[in-house]
Design a protein around this nucleic acid. Structure first.
Length: 216
DNA sequence: ATCAAGATTACCT
DNA sequence: GGTAATCTTGATA
């Protein structure tokens, strides 16, 4: 019966209740370690009662000390200053005149490292994400896979803008929930996308066979 | 003050 | 698979 099924359906997914929030110590470690371990964790944004959440399925590490593609490679600027803070803050930047991208700052103060969130698998608040992305209903099933399969798409679906620059990820608005570690064989390492410098660094990581990964 | 490039996406063939 | 869109930032003068 429809009514009883609706009553038995939880309004908040069990993962969101049972999983503890990642603490400062998770973020204040080397950027490549944090990048790999972020795969499979749950990225959450709360706006009042609304909860948007998705599983992190694709990331890229950026290390200002050796990596020419990192925004911090040539030192501190107004745009990148949050990346030089301690791990556990959100670095949001605007690019190509159109898109915001979300990054998780990692490591110790002064390092200038962060992990770009490239793709999510939507978990909760999917209707809201669809509205944010397209301003209408889905046209077809294929569009669902296009919801959060790229860094700009993630920010669009989650309504993350420059307003969220510097958000403390140990706070209550934007945070990440812990989940069991993935098996090593499910983590693919590859070259990063959309950059022209330091392309040899294999610092893009994604979950094997996940359909929301932007590019295989 | 001016300019080129950009951690992308959508739409076209 | 190719490319136009669009504007902020950082580098250079």
């Amino acid at each position: 019966m429809k009514s009883s099924r609706r009553l038995s359906k939880p309004t908040v997914l069990p993962e969101l209740i049972l999983s503890p929030k990642l603490k400062k110590e998770f973020y204040t470690r080397p950027v490549v370690t944090v990048a790999k371990e972020l795969l499979g964790k749950i990225f959450v944004k709360k706006t009042g009662a609304a909860v948007l959440a998705g599983i992190i399925v694709e990331v890229e590490a950026y290390d200002g000390s050796v990596d020419e593609a990192a925004h911090t490679f040539r030192g501190k600027t107004k745009r990148n200053e949050i990346m030089f803070d301690r791990g556990g803050f959100l670095y949001v930047y605007f690019t190509y005149g159109a898109h915001f991208c979300s990054n998780v700052v990692t490591g110790n103060e002064g390092e200038g490292n962060a992990v770009l969130i490239r793709a999510l698998e939507p978990l909760q608040g999917i209707d809201e994400m669809i509205k944010n992305r397209f301003g209408r209903d889905l046209k077809n099933e294929k569009e669902k896979l296009n919801l959060t399969s790229g860094p700009g798409k993630v920010c669009s679906a989650m309504s993350i803008t420059k307003e969220h620059y510097g958000t403390d990820l140990t706070g209550d608005e934007i945070f990440i929930l812990n989940r069991p570690a993935l098996s090593k064989k499910d983590i693919i390492s590859a070259g990063r996308i959309g950059i022209t410098k330091s392309t040899e660094l294999p610092w893009r990581f994604y979950i094997r066979d996940n359909p929301y990964v932007s590019k295989k």
